[in-house]
């Protein structure tokens, strides 16, 4: 389970995303979701290859 500072930060981010009601009703679920997402974000490999820049797939 997240420490108090981490939990507070997760709930603040959730409110910034508009999940005020969610944060009131289900704070533990949000904290679990935030912690889980952080673990996944840490696994994403970095890419500085210009061929992967967004302009290559967000074509108008």
């Amino acid at each position: 389970m997240a420490d108090t500072d981490t939990a507070t930060e997760i709930l603040a981010r959730a409110r910034m995303a508009g999940l005020h009601r969610f944060a009131e009703l289900y704070p533990d679920a949000l904290i679990r979701a935030g912690e889980g997402m952080a673990r996944h974000l840490a696994n994403i490999p970095a890419s500085d290859d210009p061929a992967t820049e967004p302009a290559t797939y967000f074509t108008p």
Binding site: I10, G34, I44, A46, T52, P54
Partner: peptide, 16 residues
């Protein structure tokens, strides 16, 4: 709810 914790920068990093 997990998607609320993915920033625009995270999303682009993942697409790259």
């Amino acid at each position: 709810a997990a998607g609320a914790f993915v920033s625009a920068a995270d999303y682009i990093r993942a697409q790259r």
